[in-house]
Design a binder for these strands. Structure first.
Lengths: 336, 336
DNA sequence: CAGCGCAATCGAAGCGCTTCGACACACGTA
DNA sequence: TACGTGTGTCGAAGCGCTTCGATTGCGCTG
């Protein structure tokens, strides 16, 4: 079943069928109808390889998903799914690359023209893949922001502002001593952008407001979370506000706090940076800055499409954080 | 950079370069070396589309990942990653399809020759995609086993045997009244194969051994798990053994049980069906039947490659369960 | 020493699509 | 009436690779 079969069936030339499909030249309504009907009747589907060869476009984009220690898989997949969905909305498919493939994988899919562009997740401050991406003639978009963004296209939540917003919210409620329950140590060690920027915003805002602030990296295992919470509240009994930037830690943290005899939010206020569903399902529902995975994924695809269309999108797009008050943060308890 | 550039550089014809690359005809060692060196020097990478067009092989396989209510994302991704890794070992890439794309997606990627074959995860007993897969001329492999397997190729852990093994282990330890903490209700409602088969094996073995058995579907939210455990132990105080087939429920369940004043394994034995890492990291480490995601993913790719090579693999491959005793199951406590 | 078979290589014909220039025709204008 | 000016369609040339004979030259055998 080829384009020439459709052409014959509709009584036109193959090029006309092609133009009906691509819309790149005007076709009379009557012809268009006839061609579309033939396509329908014959069940014609163009051959992707032939199309890619002739047009120099594969209509596929590559997505590098970060499956490595410390990352929270469900959130990573929220990003991935929204990339796939948005790509499909724009007639593109998604080729799945794992972090493990590394830069060789990027060179391969670009060099063989398998893909039209690349989206990379979980970008580090000084990411090893960036020189490779720069050397490629293919456009790419980073989800996350490295130190040096010259000539790149990056999209992310503004984690610096998110960290600040959490501190500001707690400070406004009167809290004077707070802590950040952060990502696992491995995430900071490899200098993942979003984690580092959250800490920066957290500390900067606290400094500016004269709030005493501690940062506690925290592994995801419930036992580790309990230990971290226990240690923190023992060593800094004056802490009345917590910012949590660690999805899997949320539930065990709330339990641990309760186990230590503190009520949320009566004795201890908690503000999370997490996807909305996670925040609303916790008990109590968490005051939180939402992690808009869907929007970030969609925007990443849009930006990539812009680059494919030769528009020059901005180097860095940071989505402003939105803090939604729920039931986990309240005014600082009166001193005993 | 085309194959003819390489050919010129090496002083041979394009077809010779092609044969060096594919190995489909014998080439003298001297020529081969010369060609490979030219490829290296020039950094030649063949054009995927051109290759797909001429050879009728895209060297890409499609993977349908199940991101829908009730599934545990980290485990699903273990499967997906092992599929990607195994595919890369065999010179194939992976196109990511979401469940949401449905049967249309299958028809599209097959019809346009984007992919050489399809792997489908999370198969239901009467899966709507099966008629579509049957109608395709492309080979496919199911991870999971539907009711009717005629002409299909399926791979999975033998969940029936896994359910039986758990019951047998508990029965051997003297337990006479047990319960299965199962998947979320939605998983049973859509009749997901692996969940249903586990229940079947669980009930059959219990029946044969005269053990009293209850099945408790269970949502993943910690609160739901606690409620389910509380209800169960109130209504059936004689239960001394639990089989858990629900990854996210493991930790909250252990906590809930403790909260109800029961020690594991002194008062209550627990056997899980879960990935090894999850079982070993729990406290106490769980006696469990491991969920060999890596092997299943690898085998799925192997089976698909066999079909691409026109070998006729078996319709159903069930991996035998392996129960590893750890610290969560012990002899039934003496009656009070 | 003719003849054969085999190994190594080449040339050319596609694979199915897009795209560019050419062309035919209808229409409005001078 | 002749002439631009569009509009809609066609034909043919590639896109870069694989693959199928065909061809060459070699070492053997009888």
């Amino acid at each position: 079943m080829r384009i020439s079969d459709v052409a014959r069936h509709a009584g036109v030339s193959p090029s006309t069928v092609s133009y009906v499909l691509s819309g790149k030249r005007s076709i009379s309504p009557a012809t268009r109808e006839r061609v579309l009907e033939s396509i329908e009747v014959l069940g014609y589907q163009p051959h992707a390889g032939a199309r890619a060869l002739a047009s120099n476009r594969s209509n596929v984009i590559a997505l590098v998903v970060p499956l490595r220690p410390g990352i929270h898989v469900p959130v990573a997949m929220q990003f991935a799914v929204s990339v796939v969905t948005s790509a499909r909305d724009r007639e593109h498919d998604v080729l799945l690359l794992t972090q493990a493939e590394g830069e060789g994988g990027l060179r391969r899919v670009a060099g063989t023209s398998m893909v039209d562009g690349i989206i990379v997740m979980d970008v580090e401050v000084d990411d090893a893949r960036i020189p490779t991406l720069r050397s490629l003639s293919h456009p790419s978009v980073l989800i996350g922001v490295p130190a040096e963004t010259e000539g790149l296209t990056c999209i992310d939540l503004d984690f610096d502002a998110a960290g600040r917003a959490c501190v500001a919210h707690l400070a406004d409620l009167g809290h004077r001593e707070i802590a950040l329950i952060g990502q696992p140590p491995s995430v900071y060690e490899r200098r993942t952008g979003f984690a580092e920027r959250t800490v920066a915003g957290f500390e900067a805002e606290a400094g500016e407001r004269g709030v005493e602030a501690t940062v506690v990296p925290c592994d995801a295992a419930p036992a580790a979370v309990t230990a971290a919470a226990t240690d923190l509240l023992r060593e800094r009994p004056g802490v009345t506000g917590l910012v949590v930037h660690n999805e899997p830690a949320v539930t065990p943290l709330l339990e641990a706090v309760r186990g230590l005899g503190r009520e949320v939010p009566a004795d201890l206020s908690v503000v999370a940076i997490a996807p909305d569903d996670l925040a609303t399902e916790a008990s109590p529902p968490l005051t939180s800055v939402s992690l808009p995975a869907e929007e970030v994924g969609g925007r990443a695809v849009s930006l990539l499409m812009d680059k494919l269309d030769d528009l020059g999108p901005p180097e860095v797009t940071l989505l402003p954080p939105r803090l939604v008050p729920r039931a986990s943060a309240a005014a600082r308890p009166a001193l005993p």
